[in-house]
Nucleic acid binder design. Structure first.
Lengths: 156, 156
DNA sequence: GTGCGACTTGAAGTCAGCTTTAGGTCAAGG
DNA sequence: CCTTGACCTAAAGCTGACTTCAAGTCGCAC
């Protein structure tokens, strides 16, 4: 029950799975706050583990740190987040996940039709998307799901 | 019908949607080949548009350029790829897409159960994945789909 | 032949999200 | 008190996929 049971960076690293360098980085970026010993070493409250779990989950579904920070800022400062707090954030993520899934399914279905048609002409293939037509639409392909366009591995 | 109808880099850029800088980059990286004018300017065969469509599709589903190059190298050198050529590549992508979709769906379902339970304790939540337990499992969270785990610290 | 936009190159810059390095300091057990 | 491992900082480095820059060249219309 003591509020004194503070964790060292090494302990947090071990329990959270984030390396110390990442923890320091997150602190610099304003995602975590720490107290310090008289000697300047970091001491973490246990609640940081929850924040880190949040961060990991968010990163997992491709949310950038800027956005994670916004989410964390919406959580109440010291106290345990309420059910409503989590629900709000969770719903936002749910929407994002749905979008990502939908985009991938659309892409997969397009791919299936490619396999079916042989895709030799590439004229009607949604996935390969003939360049001549795209060119007329202006720079940057516009036929693929926005979620996935221009989003290499990181977001997926 | 002439084989002479070659495209300038600007034309290819316009038709493919890739900026000239990306086209030069892809050439340096061995994804494209070009002929040159006597003065050293690039001239592209029309077939490059197909390769670029391939590249765009691959990039869209998160495939890195290294792997794209491997895929392109499997296509016959000069001639139009056969149905079998495309099918082989497409099937590989299909599998990858299926994996990605499955991982996202698993994540979404986990998120749904979080919303349901309120996630106040975080003790049983698959998505948030309590740090204390993870700590006991060794470094690096192990509860999320491999596809999406993307632990920031692969080396830890 | 001249003007000018499109083209050429290599090198350096960008972005995210960290990691690594160098050179020191702290804290706790013996 | 001393040792030793964990910790500190700032700054630089890394990866991938490009973009931007500087300085110069090409090619086509007039």
């Amino acid at each position: 029950m003591d509020a004194k049971e503070l964790l060292t960076i090494g302990e947090v690293a071990h329990r959270s799975g984030f390396p110390p360098s990442a923890l320091r980085y997150y602190e610099r970026e304003g995602l975590l706050r720490t107290t310090r010993t008289s000697g300047g070493q970091r001491r973490y409250e246990r609640s940081v583990l929850r924040r880190l779990a949040f961060i990991r989950a968010a990163r997992t579904i491709g949310i950038g740190l800027d956005e994670v920070r916004v989410g964390l800022d919406q959580l109440p400062d010291g106290r345990t987040p309420t059910k409503a707090d989590w629900s709000r954030l969770s719903r936002a993520w749910r929407g994002r996940l749905d979008e990502q899934i939908q985009a991938l399914v659309a892409l997969r279905d397009g791919l299936d039709s490619c396999i079916g048609c042989g895709c030799l002409s590439l004229q009607r293939c949604r996935l390969y998307n003939p360049g001549d037509r795209v060119g007329e639409l202006g720079p940057g392909a516009r036929l693929l799901p926005p979620m996935l366009r221009r989003t290499p591995a990181e977001g997926v």
